[in-house]
Design a protein around this nucleic acid. Structure first.
Ligand SMILES: [Zn+2]
Ligand SMILES: [Zn+2]
Ligand SMILES: [Zn+2]
Ligand SMILES: [Zn+2]
Lengths: 147, 147
DNA sequence: ATCCAGTTGAAAAGGATTTTCAACTACAGA
DNA sequence: TCTGTAGTTGAAAATCCTTTTCAACTGGAT
């Protein structure tokens, strides 16, 4: 089963319909390795699918995030951002130059989490960890003096 | 030197003026142990200082964050949020029930950061870690069935 | 082929934040 | 203390991002 088919199946399982818009959006997301805002995704889509409205992109991203088919990230400027990514617990390494997102599957925070819960009396239900830096490309660019 | 005085000094050092509005805002922040949005802070201020406008609260929070006198946090819903807190590197434990913020001074992520940098070729300049859960109070409330 | 709940796009509404601008004021220097 | 000025303020307007509304449309079950 192709990745796309798995995603279709997951959507259908949730009682959602498979529409041409949703397929186009899923495919587009697969080709993006950075984090992106709904507006950016819409801009990219509009070349091949000018008929897909911005509102649909907003709605579909929300649906995909709820279905675990896309990652809801923090904000870029004022805009919410998303990234292609696995639904299981993971973290992100983000390039401040090009917004590329690298998934980090390992998470060694369980012990710290337990200790904090013990020390503070909180019950801790989740955490969010995110590293920011420069990818190899962007390091080269800034070293090259294109300032 | 009182904490307030240290903050005044830091502001002046940056070439900023000490205005009654800024003092009122600094004092108000000192009394808030949760994260808060500019609007929430403005609401709290308006009891004693109805003359301070929302725009000034926005501007002042931005200034204080830049000066390291307040912590810029993530978003609560659509709003940016801030929290009283130290300027040096630290993390946060946030209660989802009451938005209380506990500062976590320890950070054991240096090694993971180094390893990631090595594995990915990134240079990593910072990270953001945030735990979410329920404080003792809010646990009691939800256990008490006040749903 | 039919039907209907879910989906769509455009426009409008809703909110948060920033910009604009004229009036004001903290404070350095005289 | 007085003055000049650069920084600050508040209200309104402008800007953005996001959601809601609603009538038309459609996927897919029967
Ligand atoms: Zn990069
Ligand atoms: Zn983790
Ligand atoms: Zn709480
Ligand atoms: Zn840290």
């Amino acid at each position: 089963m192709t990745p796309l088919e798995m995603k279709r199946r997951k959507l259908r399982g949730g009682g959602n319909k498979i529409t041409p818009q949703r397929i186009a959006i899923l495919k587009a997301i697969d080709g993006i390795h950075s984090q992106f805002t709904p507006q950016e995704l819409h801009r990219k889509l509009s070349a091949e699918h000018p008929e897909i409205g911005l509102v649909t992109v907003y709605r579909t991203l929300k649906l995909l995030a709820k279905s675990g088919l896309v990652c809801l990230m923090g904000n870029i400027g004022r805009s919410q951002s998303y990234a292609r990514g696995p639904q299981q617990h993971h973290h992100h390494l983000i390039c401040a130059g090009c917004d590329m997102v690298v998934d980090i599957p390992t998470c060694g925070l369980d012990e710290l989490e337990k200790r904090l819960a013990h020390e503070t009396g909180f019950t801790i239900s989740r955490h969010h960890l995110e590293f920011t830096g420069l990818c190899r490309n962007c390091q080269a660019v800034s070293a090259g003096g294109l300032v």
